[in-house]
């Protein structure tokens, strides 16, 4: 979803230019990252007003720290780290925590329904990645296919909202911030293995939520 970027180096150059007073560089930087950052907040907290507030706070902090910015990491990592801290601060002020914001148990203790009900062979027959990818994408986008895509998106959106916050954050940082495990770990303050575990659970749950929308061939295999 993030547009093609020249990389963190260009972002750092834009930030450095803005530190010297080049507002156009900031506008480029902002237009490049505003969508992903806003969606990160919106899909993490689910409240447009709160997302806008946190979004603005992150940019204000970046603007104020522009002259002390030193590109030692990707700008994206720097930006989302501020965003993560703003989110944690918000949860702390509201008496909640990012970990237990959903009221669910920590992720390591979450019983995975898919792991219990599906054995690998059954899951493979039920939901084939190859079939799922090649099904609607290769066919002509007719009304039925478009409806299927919309249904998948809606289903994924609902499943994403149902994820525990830390798993959802890891997923969003990967999708919106285009981050790897190490960068997600740096942003969230967790170690890489924890992040990997969170992503594994998130992928498994989201995959399960989309299983009903698998292509017809896969559904036939299930029956």
């Amino acid at each position: 979803m993030l547009p093609a970027m020249a990389g963190g180096t260009e972002d750092a150059q834009l930030m450095t230019r803005y530190a010297t007073g080049d507002v156009a560089a900031f506008e480029t930087l902002y237009s490049r990252h505003k969508g992903p950052l806003y969606r990160y907040f919106l899909r993490q907290c689910g409240d447009p007003e709160l997302a806008a507030e946190l979004f603005q706070e992150v940019w204000v902090r970046i603007i104020k720290a522009r002259e002390r910015y030193e590109p030692r990491a990707r700008f994206t990592t720097y930006m989302y780290q501020i965003g993560h801290n703003c989110l944690v601060d918000h949860y702390r002020k509201s008496g909640r925590s990012l970990t237990d914001g959903s009221g669910e148990a920590p992720i390591e203790q979450i019983p995975d329904p898919l792991a219990e009900e599906l054995d690998p062979a059954f899951a493979s027959a039920r939901w084939s990645l190859v079939d799922w990818e090649q099904g609607p994408a290769d066919s002509a986008p007719g009304p039925e296919a478009a409806n299927s895509v919309a249904q998948r998106a809606a289903r994924l959106w609902s499943a994403l909202e149902a994820l525990p916050p830390e798993q959802r954050e890891a997923f969003l940082l990967h999708e919106e911030g285009e981050m790897g495990l190490a960068e997600i770990a740096a942003v969230t303050g967790a170690n890489a293995e924890t992040v990997k575990s969170r992503l594994r659970y998130a992928v498994k749950k989201l995959r399960g939520a989309l299983g009903d929308l698998a292509p017809a061939s896969s559904r036939e295999a299930l029956s």
Binding site: Q56, V60, A150
Partner: peptide, 30 residues
């Protein structure tokens, strides 16, 4: 395919008012 499905979700953007406000802050800061 999760990434593909995620990309299919409506890519929302911040309100234009918010964009204008932040850009104004950025200009004013310089």
């Amino acid at each position: 395919p999760l990434s593909t499905a995620y990309d299919a979700i409506d890519p929302v953007h911040p309100p234009e008012v918010l964009d204008a406000k932040i850009l104004a802050i950025a200009k004013g800061a310089t």
